[in-house]
Amino acid sequence: MSETPPGLLASVADLHEMELARAGGADIVDLKQPAFGALGAWSTEALTAAVMLWNAWGTQMPAHARPALSATAGDQPMVPALMRAAAERVATTGVPIVKLGLFASEHAGECVEALAPLAARTRLIGVMFADEGPDFGLIGTLGRAGFAGVMIDTADKKSGSLTEHLDPLTLSQFVSEARRHGLITGLAGSLRIDDIPGLIGVGADYLGFRGALCAGGRSGTLDPLRLGQVSARLRAPSDLPRP
Rank of each mutant, 00 (worst) to 15 (best):
T4V: 08
P5A: 14
P6F: 07
S11R: 08
V12H: 12
V12W: 10
L15G: 01
M18F: 13
E19C: 01
A21C: 09
A23Y: 00
D27Q: 12
V29W: 07
V29M: 01
L31P: 05
L31W: 01
A38F: 09
A38I: 08
G40P: 02
A49R: 15
V51G: 09
V51F: 11
M52K: 15
N55W: 03
T59R: 13
Q60P: 00
M61Q: 10
H64A: 07
R66I: 10
P67M: 08
A68L: 14
A68S: 03
A68E: 05
L69W: 12
G74Y: 15
Q76L: 15
M78H: 08
R84L: 15
T92E: 12
V95T: 10
V98S: 05
A104M: 07
P117N: 06
R123A: 03
M128Q: 09
E132A: 14
F136T: 08
L138P: 02
L138Y: 03
A145Y: 07
A148K: 11
G149T: 07
A155S: 08
K158H: 04
S159Q: 11
G160M: 09
G160N: 09
S161Q: 09
L162G: 05
D167F: 09
T170K: 15
S172W: 07
F174G: 00
S176E: 01
E177G: 02
R179D: 00
G189F: 13
S190W: 06
L191W: 10
I196W: 15
L199H: 05
G203F: 05
G203T: 08
A204N: 10
D205R: 12
Y206M: 05
G211Q: 10
A212F: 14
L213S: 00
C214R: 02
R218E: 04
R226H: 02
R226E: 01
L227R: 02
S231T: 01
R242Y: 02
